[in-house]
Every structure is written in structure tokens, then in C-alpha cells.
Design a protein around this nucleic acid. Structure first.
Lengths: 341, 341
DNA sequence: TTGTAGGCGTTATCAA
DNA sequence: TTGATAACGCCTACAA
């Protein structure tokens, strides 16, 4: 039998009004009464029924996040970190996190958003994987449901968002490579034209320009995300009249292929060939040779998104609604001459 | 301004009772009325307010899952797949998933469980990472809150659980190795004595016995989960008077070290040395050489746990409350003679 | 087949 | 400083 506010009131022979206000920290209740109420509530194990509270207060103290559930994601470690971050920061602000999953951009996704909005299931949403002309942006804006998003779509709405600035970071990395004597730098990307890839590629171009290095389009290869794809790309690069001595690779699985190709050609990583990867499936620092990598601070991003969303929900005015986060640059042996293999 | 059941009733000049029952599929409402109600509800975009419904029905149609948030997990792809699976199957049963995260076994974890129970926030829980003598088992049993769990603790309570049977699978794998001519098989494990590791190790021992192979304790090494750990372990094995020609390795990161050590010694993988890994950080099928691996069907496990939990919540009697799932054995080039390197 | 009315557990308004 | 009372939106006896 669940314990309600009535039980606490009866237990102390006072009214439920007083109990409610004592626990909510109102000032118009005497300190002695408050203590007795708090004490009794603890003894009886009373916590306000969430549904009743939601109904009365007209808010849920819950935020929603819908996982993109394309097959390729299901083992992407990004999401474990991301959800952990969302849940932690939400809990920190006394919010709960409601999670569902749906294929990107399909009907089901739309239904879930609409259901949660119409049912008043959540107070706001965190979005990621925003598409160009994303209907969610328009829908939530129209319905006046607060949200924050990782990366932006090509719209003019004004909403809080977090942007990971790969470009600067990658261009700095190019500086580093050049400083280590690696001046012929290749870029292995993917066929995706997500903003995130564009950004990385821009950083590459920017870095070349800043170092007055010529741009050579034969050094840019689009590969798939497999190890074989990386292997093939690396082989192709090796066959060039002037092969590169550094490779920036989109992820660590193709990088495994690059390593294999380097091995075939008896190239020493970090000596004859430098290698850089973007945040991939595994922790590149636990591999030998450790790979220099550019990582998103996933949990920090999630924290920030939640903080922005909560501010939005509470109507707190934010000075900065477009936050920019720098990726983390981790230097490993793969770009430093004189390091271990 | 949210649309409520009253708006729909007013719109059609009928009572809210009729609206409620028409939408809930009661039989005592005329078909014409029902159609009109459904039509009007769609037009107005009406969906029942979730809080009100929860309050009245005394259930939430929500299940809870608390992520273990030790630092080492945050990038573990197990959890993305697991949560996706939970969310999908919950949605399939018209349930939502509430997620929080807490360090394993701490006060915060306890508070969240208690809060969700006392607040009547969820109808039940999915547990994983159960410890021996896990307080959650006793607490939830006492409070009569339904739950299902991945793996069991050493208790005698009767609750639905899923067990992944590594032992049989690993022993079959040993058969396979022997069939391919790899008869001197080493086992690189970790220092963890989780049930899951015990299980794998048991399978190894069982496989040896079944194939009348002698057990040699110098072939069993406890390593950490880094690539260097795997490298060291492999080196140590190579220095034995009779080194192994097959290695079963706890995860794929140390396996990268094993590959490196094999390379140093000019051993060809799949020819001179067979290699098997357990589900690790990345998809071993996307690497070259593809590694033979033993994987948990993570999403399937999650689906099953949710189905079991929902049956428990609804009081549907389950025939099988202790489900057993077989891991997935994927054969790659690393255990087959004559394959590509 | 439909409508009336009470109550789920809280919070908020108002009066004492 | 406290207490009675009216919602919040929905479901469901029970009555018509």
C-alpha cells in the first residue's frame, strides 16, 4: 500500500496543505512543524507521487531523447557516453531522462516526438543527428517545445545548440605534422557529406593553406568505414608518384587497414608515415603504437546540451545560445619521430 | 493551449465518458460514434495526458533502467546496443523507457531505485551487472516491484533472468580449433572474476577435456584489457618451451597486441597461430584478417529482458523464467588454415 | 448506448 | 502560521 501525503498528515494530525508546503520549502510554515514533517516523511518513506505532481504542476521534470537506431549505430560507443552524459546532467538538475529509439527520419520517429509532445510526456528534447531542413526543428518550434541540439541544420530559427569545431583543431594538427617534418599529407574521408565531415575536411584545407602547402587532390580519398577500405586507400596512395608521408584518416577501423598497408611496405609508423584518426570505435590510446587522434568530449557535450535545455525550459536567459566545443587532441606515437614503433 | 478530452467532447457535443470509451475500444459505444470520435481526436490532435492517465490507472507504462556509470563503461558499445534494444522492445509493447545512470553499487544508485519506486515513476526495472548478494534483488522483491535481470546473483529468489551460455559455445570453439589442427590452445583472460569470465573459462576447460587435451596452466594468462597487456601475454606465451598455436583472447584490444607480437615473430595468423576473441569494442568482422569471435547478441538479449519484464508486470505467467541465450560464433580468417592472411 | 459524478494524489488559492 | 477546498485530466462505477 503506497504511502501518500495523507498518511503523513494523519500521522502528525495536521493538514495535507501543511505537509506539502513544509516539504516544498515554503517560508510560511514554522520551523518546528517543518522538522516534524520532514522527520515523519522520512520515517514513513514518503515521496510525492510523480503523476499527481505532474498533473497539478503541469510539467514533468523529464527530458526526452530519441536514439537514432540505424543498424550501423547500434554498437557505436558514442551513444553510451552520450546517454550517460545526458542522464547524469539531467539527474544533476533533478530531471529524469526518457529514451526511445527510432530509425532516422522515418514515420516512427515522427510519431514518438508527436506522442511525447501531445501526451505532455516531457518538458523538452535533446536532438542530435539533425538533418538539413529537419522537420523536428520546425515542429518543436511551432509547438513551443524547448529543445537543444548537437550541430545545427540549415535553418534560421533561434535555438540553443552545440557545435564541435573540428576545423580549427584539424588545422592545428596539420601544423603539428608539418612541425614534425611530415609535409605531404593525405586525407582519407568517407562518402558522407555530413556537416561534421565537411568541417574536418575544411580544417585540412585550412591547415594546408596556413602552412603554404599545395593542395593536391590525388591525396584526398573517399573510403568506406571498413578496414579493407582503409587498406585499399593506403595502397592507392602508396602508388602515387609522390606518396604521402602522413595520413589523416576518418576513423580507426579504416586506420587498421592503413597500418596493414604500411606494414606491407615496411613503413614505420611515426617515422616514415604519420597517422592521425578521428574518434572511432575504440580508445586509440590503448593501442600500440598509440595513435594521434581527434576526439569529441562526448559526455561534456551531453552535459552542455542538457544545461542549455534546462535553461531554455526554465526560461533562464542564456547569454550564449550557440556554444562551441573544441575537440580533444591526443598526441600518440603515430605522429612523432623518434617514438617507439 | 493543450487539447484535452473535454475539447474533443465539446467539439462533438457528447460527454467525455463516451470519448474516453470510444478511444479505448470499449464495445458499448456505437460504431458511428466511435468513428466520429476517432476522427475528431485526430483532427484536434488529441492524445490522453499521460500524467492524468497514470494517476487514474495507477500504472505508468514505463520501465526503468539504470546505467552503470563507472568511467570504464562510458564508451562501451554494449550499452548503446543494449539501450537501443530496451527502448525498441519497450516501444513495441507500448511502454516507454526511463534511463538514469549511477556508479555501480553506490548510494546514488540506491537513491534512484528508491525514488523511482516510491514516486511510482516506473512499473518495473531491467537490471544488469548484478553483483553477488545484490541489495536490489532483495529490495525490489520486498517492495513487490517487478524486474528482470541479465545474469543472476547468488540468491534463491525467483525472478526472470537471462543467461548467456558462453561455456558450451567456447567448448565448441575448442572443437573447431582442434579440427583445424590447432591443439595447443592458450587462454588470455582478465583478473576479473565476474560470472561471465568464469563461464568462458569453464568452456575452455570443458573443451580441452572433451578433446582429451591436457590442461596446462602455463597456457592461461591473466592480462589487463590493453593492447600492451595482450602483447606482453603473447610474448610470454611465445617464450614457453612449447608455445601455443592458438590463443583465445578475452577482448579485441588485447588481441591487437597479440597480433603485433605474432607479427614480430613472423607468425601468420590463421596458419601458424589461430586467434579467437570475445565481443570487444569493435566489429571484428570489419578488420583484416577477420577475427573469429564469440559475441553476445546484445539487442536480442535486451528484447528478451523487456518481454520477460512486461510479462511479469502484467502477471502473465511465463513458462520459462530462466532464459538461456547462445552467444554468436563468427568464424573469421584467424582460425582457418588456407585463408587469406 | 450514453451521461453523471466521484476520485486518483498533488499543489495552489483563499480564508481563518 | 495553518486548514478547507478546488482544480489538474482522466477513467469507471453506476444510473438513465
Amino acid at each position: 500500500m503506497p504511502v501518500t501525503i495523507r498518511d503523513v498528515a494523519r500521522h502528525l494530525s495536521i493538514s495535507i496543505t501543511t505537509v506539502s508546503r513544509a516539504l516544498d520549502g515554503y517560508s510560511d510554515v514554522s520551523e518546528t512543524t517543518r522538522q516534524r514533517v520532514i522527520q515523519a516523511a522520512r520515517e514513513l518513506g514518503y515521496l510525492p507521487n510523480r503523476a499527481a505532481r505532474q498533473l497539478r504542476r503541469k510539467r514533468t521534470d523529464t527530458i526526452g531523447y530519441i536514439l537514432p537506431s540505424g543498424a550501423f549505430n547500434s554498437s557505436d560507443p558514442f551513444f553510451s557516453g552520450f546517454i550517460t552524459g545526458l542522464a547524469d546532467e539531467a539527474a544533476h538538475g533533478n530531471y529524469d531522462l526518457l529514451v526511445s529509439s527510432a530509425p532516422i527520419g522515418g514515420d516512427i520517429e515522427q510519431q514518438i516526438y508527436q506522442r511525447w509532445v501531445c501526451e505532455k510526456r516531457v518538458d523538452g528534447f535533446v536532438l542530435n543527428h539533425v538533418r538539413q531542413n529537419d522537420w523536428r526543428i520546425n515542429y518543436l518550434t511551432d509547438e513551443q517545445v524547448p529543445f537543444s541540439s548537437l550541430e545545427r541544420s540549415a535553418d534560421t530559427h533561434d535555438y540553443p545548440s552545440v557545435h564541435v569545431e573540428y576545423s580549427t583543431c584539424v588545422s592545428r594538427l596539420v601544423n603539428h605534422l608539418v612541425g614534425q617534418g611530415f609535409k605531404r599529407i593525405a586525407f582519407i574521408g568517407t562518402t558522407d557529406d555530413l556537416t561534421i565531415h565537411t568541417d574536418r575536411y575544411q580544417g585540412y584545407r585550412l591547415g594546408l593553406t596556413m602552412n603554404r602547402l599545395p593542395f593536391d587532390e590525388t591525396l584526398v580519398i573517399q573510403s568506406d568505414l571498413s578496414s579493407t577500405g582503409g587498406y585499399r586507400a593506403a595502397k592507392k596512395l602508396q602508388l602515387l608518384p609522390k606518396p604521402p608521408n602522413a595520413i589523416i584518416c576518418v576513423s580507426d577501423i579504416p586506420a587498421a587497414g592503413v597500418l596493414r598497408a604500411a606494414d606491407d611496405a615496411h613503413l614505420r609508423i611515426g617515422e616514415d608515415l604519420a597517422l592521425v584518426v578521428f574518434d572511432g570505435v575504440q580508445d586509440s590510446q590503448r593501442l600500440q603504437p598509440t595513435l594521434t587522434s581527434v576526439n569529441q568530449p562526448v559526455e561534456e557535450i551531453a552535459h552542455l546540451l542538457v544545461r542549455m535545455l534546462l535553461a531554455e525550459i526554465k526560461g533562464t536567459s542564456l547569454v550564449e545560445r550557440q556554444a562551441v566545443i573544441q575537440p580533444i587532441l591526443r598526441f600518440g606515437h603515430s605522429t612523432s619521430k623518434g617514438g617507439p614503433k
